[in-house]
């Protein structure tokens, strides 16, 4: 497992060796902040000292933005042929998968944490509940990991980055839409309520919402962690096949 460190380092710094990191971080912050200030977010109009109107868009934003980070993880290695180099180094597939995933996750965590001026603004203007805010950040980071797990997996399936992006987007969208009320009502009309309930339980939106209210429910934490574990397991299987 000590082999994870150099792989992590290479992958994480790799984002900054090309313009990818800067383009990504800037557009992520611009989009997320402008959504919060937009008439859909009502950051000021709400008159509450919280970041709820900032984080409310995160499940949607991540749906587009995490595939952009995840699509290159394996597709790029396959296209450039460096995968042959990587897998003839003395590492196991699991170490490679974890090294890459953790690097991508750390990058997304960095992107999320770079919104700290928003938190400072709220702190300057009022008395926010810092506990709720910390829980929200935790939730966002966990959710980012779950999205990334899916994207890493789809990226391992193809050497074409466009296909990888579209597949990731589609897969992530499923996990977002499962939680929409209009979708669940349709589902309930076809399936028994208990089954529909179970399906909508897989939605990122519902699991993330609890965090934004300051509730760290072990159920939600375990949901995101187990989804990561499962997708990473499939990732190893997909690469070893």
């Amino acid at each position: 497992m000590s082999q994870i460190r150099p792989l992590f380092k290479r992958e994480f710094l790799g984002y900054f060796r090309s313009p990818v990191a800067y383009v990504f971080l800037v557009s992520f912050l611009v989009i997320s902040v402008s959504l919060a200030f937009s008439r859909y977010g009502n950051f000021f109009k709400n008159g509450t000292a919280s970041l709820e109107s900032y984080f409310i868009f995160f499940p949607w934003l991540f749906m587009f933005i995490v595939p952009a980070v995840g699509m290159r993880l394996w597709s790029e290695e396959k296209r450039a042929g460096t995968i042959e180099l990587l897998f003839t180094l003395p590492i196991t597939t699991l170490e490679a998968v974890l090294g890459k995933f953790l690097a991508g996750w750390a990058f997304l965590t960095l992107a999320t944490l770079l919104s700290f001026p928003m938190a400072l603004t709220v702190g300057f203007l009022g008395q926010p509940d810092w506990g709720v805010m910390a829980a929200t950040y935790l939730g966002a980071i966990l959710m980012a990991g779950a999205y990334l797990g899916i994207c890493a997996l789809t990226s391992a399936l193809t050497k074409n980055q466009v296909i990888s992006f579209v597949l990731s987007l589609a897969a992530c969208a499923v996990f977002v839409f499962l939680g929409l009320s209009s979708f669940t009502t349709t589902l309930e009309s076809i399936l028994p309520v208990s089954v529909a309930d179970m399906v909508s339980n897989f939605s990122f939106v519902t699991h993330f919402e609890a965090f934004t209210k300051g509730i760290i429910d072990p159920k939600d934490v375990i949901f995101f962690l187990s989804l990561m574990g499962f997708t990473l397991f499939l990732n190893v299987v997909a690469l070893e096949r």
């Binding site: 290479r10 790799g14 060796r17 042929g81 460096t82 042959e84 180099l85 003839t88 180094l89 590492i91």
Partner: peptide, 18 residues
Amino acid sequence: VKRQLGYLPESAPAYPEM
């Protein structure tokens, strides 16, 4: 095995941005 081996793959792939 990989520890004891030096391997130059065909067309020498390497990470281009490094």
